[in-house]
Design a binder for these strands. Sequence first.
DNA 1: TTGTATGCGTTATCAA
DNA 2: TTGATAACGCATACAA
Lengths: 356, 356
Amino acid sequence: MNKNKGVAGEEPSGALMADVARLAGVAISTVSRALANPGRVNEKTRAKINAAARQLGYTPNAMARGLRVGKSNTIMIILPGSPYYGASQIIPQVLQSINKSLIQRGYNLMIANLDREEASERHILDLAFSGTVRGAIIFSSKLPEIEGRSPAGAGLPIVSMLFDMSDAGLPSVVTNDREAIRDATMELIRSGHRRFLYIAGPEGNYHDVERYAGVLEALRAEGLSEEAVSRSGGDLEYQHGFEIGIRAAEDFMKLAVRPTAVIATSDDMAISFMSIIQRAGLVIPEHVSVVSFDGSPVCEFCSPPLSTIKQPVEEMGRAAVELLLGAISQTQDAATTRTVIRSQLILRESIAPARD
Amino acid sequence: MNKNKGVAGEEPSGALMADVARLAGVAISTVSRALANPGRVNEKTRAKINAAARQLGYTPNAMARGLRVGKSNTIMIILPGSPYYGASQIIPQVLQSINKSLIQRGYNLMIANLDREEASERHILDLAFSGTVRGAIIFSSKLPEIEGRSPAGAGLPIVSMLFDMSDAGLPSVVTNDREAIRDATMELIRSGHRRFLYIAGPEGNYHDVERYAGVLEALRAEGLSEEAVSRSGGDLEYQHGFEIGIRAAEDFMKLAVRPTAVIATSDDMAISFMSIIQRAGLVIPEHVSVVSFDGSPVCEFCSPPLSTIKQPVEEMGRAAVELLLGAISQTQDAATTRTVIRSQLILRESIAPARD
DNA sequence: TTGTATGCGTTATCAA
DNA sequence: TTGATAACGCATACAA
C-alpha cells in the first residue's frame, strides 16, 4: 500500500493505516477504531495493532483525518503588524504559553500577521475560509475584513487577548487595566506626587481609555483635579513604543511646570523616555518618578530599575485557550464574556517620594 | 451541495467547488483547472467561473487539496525551549520576517517549541510524520529525536537558522560570528583596551566557539596574549542571558585586575551585566567598555546606549525561507551549505577609549 | 467485536 | 477545450 518502499529517488512517506492493518492481520477500520476508541476493540487485537503501528512507526495523516471529520486541529494567532517587537517584548512569552496549552489539548498553533497591507488580511481570511484553522486568538485591536468576508463569516470562533473586544462580540481575556493604573497612580500620589505626565497609546483604544480613566479615578479619589495630569502620545500604535517615549520626553522637557511622575502605558515608552530625559540631565527618580505597563523582563535591568505593572501573560494565554476551545467544542456560542486577570504592580527604584 | 445553506443551528461552511461549478454551468474539473491552470481553459468559461467563485466567496479547502496532492503548504519553525524570551528579543522580528516571506510564496507558518520535555519532541515529530508540515526552520542547537524517529526520517527538509548545523547535515543561515566579534574586539584594542572579559553562551556551542575564536584572533592580530581575556559563563543557554550577565558581573567584581572591556555574546547578558556593575558603583564606559551581540532595539535606550553587533534577522529569515523552499521544490537534496550574512557593529556610548 | 463500503473536497487522468 | 471518474488516507454507518 505504501508505494515508496525504498524506491531510489522516492522520498519515504510514512506507513499508512492500511500497512498497519495488513501487518496486524485486521481490517483497516479496526485499526482506525483501535487508535481512536481503544475501548471499543478487543484487547488482544488492540495489542496486535499497537505493536504493528509502533513497528512501522505509523503516524496518522493529519490532512486525511481533517478532511474526513471536517475539522482542522490548528488554531491561529493573529499578531499585530510589522514590526511588532516594539510594544510587545512579551509576545514570545504569550506564544510560548498559548502553544503549550494548545499542544496539551491536541491542537497546533499557526501564526498570522495583521498589518496594514491588504495581503495580510487576505491571507488571514483564506486561512479561515479554507478550513485550515479551527479557531483564532487575536492580539490586535482590529479584525481583518475585506470584500465583506470576515472570520466570523467563516464560522470561526475567535477570542481576543490583551485587547478587550467584547463590544465587537468577541470573548476577551484582558487584565484589569483601569484598576491597576489607578492603584499605581494612587501609590504615586501617596508618596507626594501632584503633577503627572501620562504617555498614551493610540487614542480611543480600549486600553488607553481604561488606563487614562484609572489615572483620573486616582486623582479624584485623592481629591486632586484632572488638571494634574498632562497627556502625551495618542497618535501611534503600541508597537511604536520607543518612538512614543522619545516624543513624550520632548513634550516633557517643554512643559512649563514639569510633572514629578510619569505613567507610561507600555514598558518601551518608559524605557526610551527615561533614556532621553537622562541624557538631558534629569535624574530618575529624584527629578521624576516613572512607572509603566507590561512587565517585560528587561525592566529589572533598566537604570534605574523600572517599576512596571506586570501583565500575567502566561495565565492570560491559558485562559484564552480555554475560552477558545470551549467555544469550539460547544455548538452554541459562548456568551460574550470578558475575562479579567489581575496585573501586579512591581515596585522598583524608578519611583520615589516627590521632593517638593 | 453545500449542506449548510442557512439551516438554523448549522454553521455556514463556505461554498464548495461543486457549488461554483453549478453556478457557472460547468463541470467540477473545469473549475479546478480554471483555478489552478488558468491558461488551459477557455477565456470565456474562465471568466464565468471566476465570477461564480467570487459571488459565492469560494475558497478551496486546504485539507482536501493537501490530501490529494500529498503535500502540505505549512512550514514549521522550531523555537528553543521555555522561556525563550531571554536570549532573543529578536524572535518576534524573525517570525515576522519568515512569515512574510512564506506567505508571499504561498505557505503558512506553524510554531513548535523544543524544550527539554519529551512531549515537545514528540509533538514536533508528529507534525513531521503526520504530513502536517512540509518543511522546517530550526532555531535551536539540537534536533528532536525520539525512539529513532527524526525529522529527517520523515523526509522533511530542514534549514537551520542562527545556529550553524551544517555539520549535522542541515543547510544553515548564520551570521559571521567570528569575524564580527574579531572586528569589535580589534576596535576595542585600538582604543587602548588590553584586558577583556568575555561573557560566554553555552560552552562548546558553535557560536561560543566562533565568537571566542574571534576574540582570540583579534588578540593575536594585535600582538596580545590570550591571557588578556577572562571568560565568564558557559554553563547556561542563551535564553538565560540576564542570569548569565548577573553572574558575569559577580565574576567581574571579583577579578584581581579588572578588565577594561567586556564582550558579551548576547544583548541580555550585557544589559544585566551593566545594570549590576553600575549598582556597584562602576561607571560605563569610564571604568569599563561594553559591547554585545544581537542588536535588539532596546540597546539604543540602555544607559549608556549599548554598542551591539546587529544580526540581520530579516535578511536571515528571508534567506532561510529561500533555502528551505529550494530544498522542497527540488527532488535532489540541496548541497549542505552555510549561508553567511554579515552582521553590523553598531557603536554607541558604551564603548570609550581605555584610560590607563 | 470486526469487516465492508462510502464519502470528505479536491486534483489529475483519460476520453470525448 | 471540457467532462466523467478515480484516487488521496482516513473515519464512520451499517452489516455481519
